[in-house]
């Protein structure tokens, strides 16, 4: 019996919009995943600690404030410190194309911008977890 995919969705930094991330949370729930949501205004340290304790397959961070090149390097470093470098990190939100390339170079597995259809998110996350293997 396959275990449900576990995902932690987080909002990091000062932007106060979580309508998008809540829609994603519901979409993933309806696709049979377990979704931990940690609420607004978290720091990278808080998010990584929570993701490690929850032992999620995927850490999804939604950003609308433009601080992705500050936040993601920190998250990747903290995950490595916590022996969780094999966790799949996914970014979501609004950002310029050159930042998408920069994040992928850091090891962010996928960047899903605001026009990504919900079904595509489910498909992509499922594929990433299958490729990564069981916890």
């Amino acid at each position: 019996m396959g275990q449900p995919i576990r995902v932690l969705l987080a909002k990091v930094g000062l932007d106060g919009h979580d309508r998008g991330v809540k829609v994603v949370a519901r979409t993933l729930r309806d696709a049979g995943m377990d979704v931990v949501y940690t609420g607004l205004h978290r720091t990278p340290e808080e998010v990584v600690r929570a993701a490690v304790q929850e032992d999620v397959d995927i850490l999804g961070v939604s950003l609308l404030s433009g601080v992705q090149l500050t936040v993601f390097p920190k998250i990747m470093r903290l995950l490595a410190e916590q022996q969780a470098e094999d966790m799949i990190v996914v970014a979501g939100g609004v950002m310029p194309d050159e930042d998408v390339e920069a994040l992928k170079a850091l090891g962010v597995a996928e960047v899903m911008l605001q026009d990504t259809p919900p079904a595509a998110i489910v498909e992509r996350l499922t594929h990433l977890v299958e490729a990564r293997g069981a916890r």
Partner: peptide, 28 residues
């Protein structure tokens, strides 16, 4: 969910003040 089998686990939101405390472990 009785239909999809998925879940939204939101209890951590109310425990934010313990997010960085090494002496607290929360599992949903």
């Amino acid at each position: 969910s009785p239909y999809s089998g998925g879940a939204i686990l939101g209890d951590r939101i109310r425990m934010q003040e313990h997010a960085l405390d090494e002496g607290v472990f929360i599992r949903s």
